Computed example of a mutant assay.
Amino acid sequence: MAIILIVAVLAGAAGGLLSWLGGSAVANAILTGAGSFAGTVILLLAIGYFLVGEKP
């Protein structure tokens, strides 16, 4: 779980930073980073459940 959150924070920060450097407003860059974070968490949790074979 901790690895998933670390990877998701890095992906969210990278997404927000790249969006901000691309010319988006700060608020839009924050929303982009949050979307990247949420998408990464959902994807990695789904992969983890698939590999372990547990049902939520």
Rank of each mutant, 00 (worst) to 15 (best):
L44T: 02
I30Q: 03
A25W: 03
A14W: 11
L45A: 01
V41T: 05
F37A: 10
G39A: 11
I6G: 04
L17A: 11
V9R: 04
G23W: 02
G22K: 06
L18A: 07
K55A: 11
A13P: 01
L18Y: 08
I42Y: 11
A14L: 15
P56Y: 07
A2S: 14
A11R: 07
I30V: 15
L5K: 06
V7R: 15
S36F: 15
G35F: 04
F50T: 12
I30S: 01
L43P: 01
A8D: 00
W20I: 02
A46F: 14
G39M: 10
I47S: 04
N28D: 14
T32C: 14
A2L: 15
E54P: 03
G53Y: 05
I3K: 15
S19Q: 09
K55W: 04
I6E: 13
L51D: 10
L43E: 01
A46C: 11
L45W: 09
G35K: 01
A13V: 14
L21R: 14
V52L: 12
A25Y: 11
I4E: 03
L51K: 13
T32Y: 03
S24K: 07
A13L: 15
K55C: 00
G16D: 08
P56C: 09
K55Y: 11
I4F: 05
I3C: 07
G53L: 02
L51E: 09
A46S: 14
W20Q: 09
A11N: 10
L21I: 12
L45S: 07
L5R: 10
P56K: 13
I4P: 02
A29V: 07
T40K: 06
F50D: 09
A34P: 00
S19H: 04
I6D: 12
I47D: 00
A2H: 14
A8V: 06
L17N: 00
Y49S: 05
V9M: 13
I3S: 14
G16S: 06
G16E: 03
I30N: 02
I30M: 11
L18W: 08
W20H: 15
S24W: 01
A29Q: 04
I30Y: 06
V41A: 10
L21H: 06
I3A: 15
I30A: 12
A25C: 01
A8P: 05
A34T: 09
G39T: 08
G23Q: 06
F37K: 05
A8F: 03
F37T: 07
L21A: 13
F37M: 08
